[in-house]
């Protein structure tokens, strides 16, 4: 059964881009372990030779014609932006 350590919890939080304090990470570990442990009852089920099912929709993939039918709505696109300038979204500097 999965035992999520504090470090593991921090790694997952980092991957999910959610800030956690040490104190929170301490609690997240057992909480996730608890849920994952419960989920792991699936392991007892034999699923050899079963095709995974991603979506039940029983239709062909819908396709569009290659036509410009959208866009040209800069105002709408930026309407809810926390920060924008001269048509751009503005974010804290990205360091590469």
């Amino acid at each position: 059964m999965s035992k999520i350590s504090k470090e593991e919890a921090k790694r997952i939080a980092k991957l999910a881009r959610i800030a956690v304090t040490d104190e929170e990470a301490e609690k997240i570990g057992p909480d996730l372990s608890n849920i994952l442990g419960w989920i792991e009852q699936l392991a007892e089920l034999n699923t050899d030779n079963v095709e995974p099912l991603a979506n039940v929709a029983n239709i062909d993939l819908k396709k569009r014609k290659d036509e410009v039918t959208d866009g040209d709505m800069q105002q709408d696109v930026l309407a809810n932006a926390p920060e924008s300038m001269e048509g751009f979204f503005v974010v804290p500097k990205v360091v590469e």
Binding site: I18, A19, V77, N80, A81, P82, V91, P92, V94, V95
Partner: peptide, 24 residues
């Protein structure tokens, strides 16, 4: 993620800090 809409918590750090604080 605080970039295009919704809450943004920016405490003067880099983009990653902004993501993590916003989502937390």
């Amino acid at each position: 993620d605080g970039v295009r809409y919704g809450l943004r918590v920016d405490e003067g750090g880099n983009l990653n800090d902004m993501y993590e604080k916003t989502r937390a």
